[in-house]
Amino acid sequence: MKKNEFAVVLASDNRGVLPLSVTIFSLLNTAGPETFYKIYVLSDGIDGENRNSLERMASRFECRLEFIDVSGILEDHDFPHTEQWPVPAWGRVFIPELLKEEKGNILYLDIDVLVCRDLTELFGTDMSGKAVGVVFENFSKPGSHFNERLEMPLTCTGYFNSGVLLMNVDVFREKNLVTAVLDYAFSHRDRLTCPDQDALNGALCELTVPLHPRWNWHDGLTRRILKNDPRERFWRGVTPRQAVEAALEPGILHYQGVHKPWRYNWRYEGERYERAMREADLLHGPLPGRTLPAILKKHLYKPVYRMTRNKILKLQKQFEKEDGQCS
């Protein structure tokens, strides 16, 4: 029997089966010898053929894969769900109710993430009675885009990205937080721009635990390091030291934005994703979208990423030197 048994939840419909498959493969392929994952897929109509394909891939590893139908989950709730923000996007809100047998920490992942290492460290996070572990995008401050719009008090740490959520389902149940998030979504429906993420932030803002940015990192943040001043205390919710650590050794990469890595584009971390696709036997031949303009753009960005990496390595040496002086 494995020593570490963890529950991980993802959500998708038929349109997202390819990235869903890559995320599940990366999760299982990086698991340590003592790690066993129970994977729950919140399904909005994933058909039998795609389910069978996912089960065949998962059977290469020691794990449990289960599908939970959530296609009717919003029937009793008048929420804004669109093609961009479909039913599966809201599925994460209902996790504490859908997985009644699970206790403690459950990890929710968006399907556009790539797991880069075993997640035992992440699951061991001390939640200190709080509801959710998150990576923050911005700190609270007067006049911010979220504090006023979402009526989030300045006592809240900040605004977090909901693509990676370490959920303490015991606290959710004790405090009836599923209802709190749904009530918030309804009462603020005219203010929500990222509906599910905004609602989670607004309802849970004082019940969060900050996670190291390595658990929800993307190459846009890596590239931004080139512009950031290392003398600043924080870079959008993380310290320069944390940013360097996350860029060099990410735990979970999140491919945010419209340029997704299952299509050819200029993003640096797309190469890591492409390797995972090939290892999972999900890509034969070149990535789709490989056009001359896309190739030229990728080459134009290469010097930017080289300069970024040089700055990151320089900062790493600086931090190591400071640590040596303090010891």
Rank of each mutant, 00 (worst) to 15 (best):
M1F: 04
K3T: 02
E5I: 05
A7D: 15
V9K: 00
V17F: 10
V17Q: 06
P19I: 12
L20T: 05
T23P: 04
T23S: 13
I24L: 14
I24A: 07
F25T: 02
L27H: 15
L27P: 15
L28K: 03
A31L: 09
G32S: 12
T35D: 12
T35Q: 12
Y37C: 13
S43K: 04
D44R: 03
D44I: 05
I46T: 05
R51Y: 07
E55R: 15
E55F: 08
R56G: 05
M57K: 13
R60Q: 08
R60G: 11
E62V: 15
R64F: 12
E66G: 00
F67I: 10
D69T: 03
D69K: 02
D69G: 01
D76L: 03
F79D: 00
P80G: 08
H81V: 01
H81T: 01
T82E: 07
E83Y: 12
Q84G: 03
W85C: 10
W85N: 12
A89L: 14
R92I: 07
R92A: 07
V93E: 00
F94D: 03
I95T: 08
P96H: 01
P96I: 00
E101S: 13
K103Y: 02
L107P: 06
L107G: 03
I111F: 07
D118W: 10
L119Y: 13
L122Y: 15
L122T: 15
V135W: 14
F136Q: 02
K141E: 14
K141R: 11
K141L: 07
P142K: 09
P142Q: 08
F146S: 02
N147C: 07
R149L: 08
M152Q: 05
P153D: 14
T157G: 14
T157D: 09
N161W: 02
M167N: 10
M167R: 09
D183I: 00
F186G: 00
F186Q: 03
S187A: 13
S187D: 07
R189C: 00
D190V: 06
R191N: 03
C194L: 14
C194F: 13
P195Y: 09
Q197T: 02
A199C: 08
L200G: 13
N201Y: 09
N201G: 10
A203L: 07
E206K: 09
V209G: 08
V209F: 15
L211F: 04
W215E: 06
R224G: 06
R224P: 01
I225M: 04
L226V: 02
D229T: 06
P230D: 07
R231H: 09
E232S: 14
R236Q: 07
G237K: 00
V238M: 15
Q242L: 01
A246R: 04
A246K: 02
E249Q: 08
G257D: 05
H259F: 10
H259I: 00
Y268V: 07
E269A: 15
E271N: 11
Y273N: 04
D281Q: 14
L283V: 06
P288M: 03
G289E: 02
L292E: 11
K298F: 11
K298C: 02
Y301M: 06
P303T: 04
P303C: 01
V304A: 06
R309W: 10
K311S: 05
K311D: 04
L313C: 10
K314C: 08
K317Y: 01
F319K: 14
G324M: 03
